[in-house]
Design a protein around this nucleic acid. Structure first.
Length: 433
DNA sequence: AAAGATGATTCAAT
DNA sequence: ATTGAATCATCTTT
């Protein structure tokens, strides 16, 4: 692309450098064969001209120069010139009015904006890194990536350099070309009337042409940046497993809320903070976890037992305290005390953990009234607990754990009392670790 | 290198 | 807007 342009420039400048001579040559042909012959056989004209140019000799050049000088000094010249001016005045106006709009190309603006946003066309250093970090933040990751960034930034800098040098070349070429054309026109203006407006218009045309070329450059630069981004910043390509700790936390939450593993927005935020990942990553994780768990519960039993036991250890205290609490002031006062607000309500899951710990022994001594209704969940827990107690689980997982029809969403625990109150009061006290 | 695990994305349904 | 399901692309394990 640029090469062509350069070549064209080369050629043109060659012509213009020899400008005087060529003009002389142009004037050389049949005295009446001037530049207005564009009506019919243009190709033939070009062929003729080429032929004439090829056959120019020094001698003929001198002759032509002499002739030209003669014409310029002709006594009738001023008069003829003014006539030409008049004619032009009458015919030229219509042309001029037609091409007088310069709408800012929306496409170009879009490209410009994007390049600016991407830090390609902006200021040298700050723009690039700012855009890079912004993009990184958007892509998710957040904290870990800095080494990959340097690579990305290096490539981006490379692109920016190429872009700038090319742009500069374009600018320079445009300027050179413009000055050449203007020189040409000025030279010609001695023999034919050329108004400044016309020159201006010509310059405008040239600039438009060049800016369209620039747009191509910008376009391809944009593409390059996009490709680079997708290569380096697409999180899918640079997948990093979460830290052991993070999966630990997530799993704890998941298995301790197995009856309804849909963390609220707040819970997600808290989990995200604890795991130093983003909220959407938490959502992803739970989405994947749910579907994969449901898809093959057997495979997750061990894990489930593990985390059930783990949370049970901590939950036991809580539940025990709660039990104590509720037994202490069973009559009327619920549990609005300032002490641990283990709002028993959400203990549907806690209870499950208890089950895991104590086996079915707890069945009779229900705390409040609420737990009974969690039939399905309890079954689930029990089935898992059995496997856990056996040490090595035989494939005795109960596929009905998810409510037979499949689960969480389709039939959300037919229970009436306990679980629904996950709503306002449940601050999701995930003090599970 | 093949197989499995895992985080992310896409698409349709709600 | 959120979710389930399928799928992709990568990482990890075997």
């Amino acid at each position: 692309m640029m090469e062509e342009q350069a070549r064209i420039m080369q050629a043109l400048s060659g012509v213009t450098l020899a400008g005087h001579s060529v003009q002389g040559g142009m004037g050389l042909p049949p005295p009446h064969g001037h530049e207005g012959t564009d009506g019919d056989g243009r190709k033939q004209d070009i062929g003729d001209i080429l032929h004439q140019i090829m056959t120019i000799t020094d001698q003929s050049l001198d002759e032509a120069q002499a002739k030209k000088h003669g014409l310029n000094c002709h006594r009738m010249k001023p008069a003829l010139f003014s006539v030409l001016c008049e004619i032009k005045e009458k015919t030229g106006l219509s042309i001029r009015g037609a091409q007088e709009q310069d709408p800012p190309d929306p496409q170009l603006m879009r490209l410009d904006n994007m390049l600016l946003a991407e830090g390609v066309s902006g200021p040298e250093k700050g723009g690039g890194s700012a855009a890079a970090t912004a993009a990184a933040a958007a892509a998710g990751g957040g904290a870990d990536n800095s080494i990959e960034h340097s690579d990305y930034r290096a490539k981006l800098t490379q692109i920016r350099q190429i872009y700038h040098t090319e742009l500069e070349k374009y600018e320079q070429a445009c300027n050179e070309f413009t000055t050449h054309v203007m020189n040409l026109l000025r030279e010609q203006s001695r023999t034919r009337p050329i108004s400044p407006k016309e020159i201006e218009r010509m310059v405008g045309i040239i600039h438009r042409k060049f800016s369209s070329i620039q747009m191509q450059l910008k376009q391809s630069t944009c593409e390059a940046v996009m490709i680079l981004r997708s290569r380096f910043l697409d999180a899918r390509r640079k997948r990093r497993n979460f830290s052991k700790q993070a999966t630990e936390i997530l799993n704890e939450y998941f298995y301790s809320h197995l009856s309804n593993p849909y963390p609220s927005e707040e819970a997600k935020e808290e989990l995200a903070k604890k795991c130093s990942i983003t909220v959407s990553q938490v959502s992803n994780w739970f989405g994947n976890k749910r579907i994969r768990y449901k898809k093959n519960i057997g495979k997750f039993q061990e894990e489930a037992n593990l985390y059930a036991a783990k949370t049970a250890v901590t939950a036991t205290h809580a539940v025990a305290a709660a039990i104590h609490n509720s037994q202490a002031n069973s009559p009327t006062t619920p549990n609005s005390g300032s002490s641990a607000s283990f709002s028993l309500p959400n203990s549907g899951d806690m209870f499950m953990s208890m089950q895991s710990l104590n086996g079915a022994s707890y069945q009779g001594a229900q705390v409040g009234t609420n737990v009974q209704s969690q039939g399905d969940t309890i079954h689930h827990a029990i089935s898992q607990t059995v496997g856990y107690n056996d040490g090595l689980r035989h494939p005795m997982y109960s596929p009905h754990s998810l409510n037979g029809n499949g689960g969480w969403h389709g039939a959300p625990t037919p229970s009436s009392v306990t679980s629904p109150n996950e709503g306002p009061g449940s601050v999701h006290s995930d003090t599970s670790n």
